[in-house]
Write a protein that binds this DNA or RNA. Structure first.
Lengths: 190, 190
DNA sequence: GTCTATAGTGTGATAGAC
DNA sequence: GTCTATCACACTATAGAC
């Protein structure tokens, strides 16, 4: 690994750990730099601004999330389990050390009323990939009603994330999973 | 109306309109004062701090929300419609001028990592009243499975609010309503 | 007496120079 | 990697208007 790549990694690690647990706006650049052991000049040379760093952290996080989700899908024994695997992935991703309080992407969207384009794009990409992947996974299960089922599951997943905000650490994925299973069954029988 | 009540009202109106559309942290006190046509001394004498004003605005907004919801419930022809009336109320409340971008309470919870007690209490009260009222409305419909149905609906309502954050103005309550109806039917037949 | 207008203080942030 | 310019913000103090 080059020295450059190593510094960038340290910065992203620190940014990821702080921004999405403490809040994007509430986290000063200084604290990220301090945690990363990196100088301001490095940050502004590499990412141009705080927003640039936030966008980079979001992008990396999104790739990690998709990887965790992919693995959960791969472990599933059948198409129905593969569709519901998103909840295993959500639990797993959330339980990581420095896991976001509820959702890094929704949280960023909530904090910044009109975010710079790079951030808006990262948040948009999260929603689009969620929808797209659920559609792909729902098609084998629900046939032509797959898109309808997928849209319902986007709603349930988002609801589960919002429940973390309401109930804090007490929020379980149980209710969301139960609702999702009922919806899958409804769309399978039909 | 006393002069005192009138200035308080002007302050709350301005705070409500700005805080929950522009964001709590992103809205400077000065802009609220400017919109209200009120001097700083008045704000700090009446509410003590910005947080005090935010808490007061949240409390008033919560009362308004409950009133809108009550009216929607009263219009419903039967118990099933009364339970589903929350979606009519959500649409109505959101379509008001200066309606919050997604949800004033979830938004405040999302912005402030550990909010002052007055704000935390206001957000908690929103979640508790949502849950309590849905339970009361679900009981006549689903009998002993009422609490289970209510919890599912809390999830769907929260999901719908989060979808406003994902899809912006394009977000419709249609999918949430459809999912809710399916869940109600499932819990009714059983 | 309750309000407005305005000027000013302290803090803590981003950004960038050295 | 340190150090600093600049700025935006919450909040205060004062003086006077209706």
């Amino acid at each position: 690994m080059t020295a450059r790549a190593s510094t960038e990694r340290k910065l992203l690690d620190a940014a990821d750990a702080l921004l999405f647990t403490q809040g994007v706006a509430a986290t000063p650049v200084d604290r990220i730099l301090e945690r990363a052991g990196v100088s301001p000049a490095t940050l502004y040379r590499t990412y141009g601004s705080k927003d640039g760093l936030v966008a980079a952290a979001l992008t990396r996080r999104h790739e990690q999330w998709l990887a965790v989700w992919d693995e959960a899908v791969d472990r599933a024994p059948d198409a129905r389990a593969a569709l519901l695997a998103v909840f295993d992935a959500l639990d797993e991703f959330h339980d990581r050390p420095d896991g976001a309080r509820w959702c890094a992407f929704l949280g960023t969207a909530a904090e910044l009323v009109d975010p710079p384009e790079a951030l808006a794009a990262a948040v948009r990409e999260d929603t689009e990939s969620l929808r797209r992947r659920l559609r792909d996974l729902a098609a084998p299960v629900a046939g032509e009603r797959g898109d309808e089922l997928a849209e319902a599951l986007v709603l349930v997943v988002s609801g589960h994330l919002a429940m973390r905000l309401r109930d804090g650490a007490a929020a379980s994925s149980g209710p969301a999973r139960a609702v999702a299973e009922a919806l899958v069954d409804l769309h399978t029988r039909a």
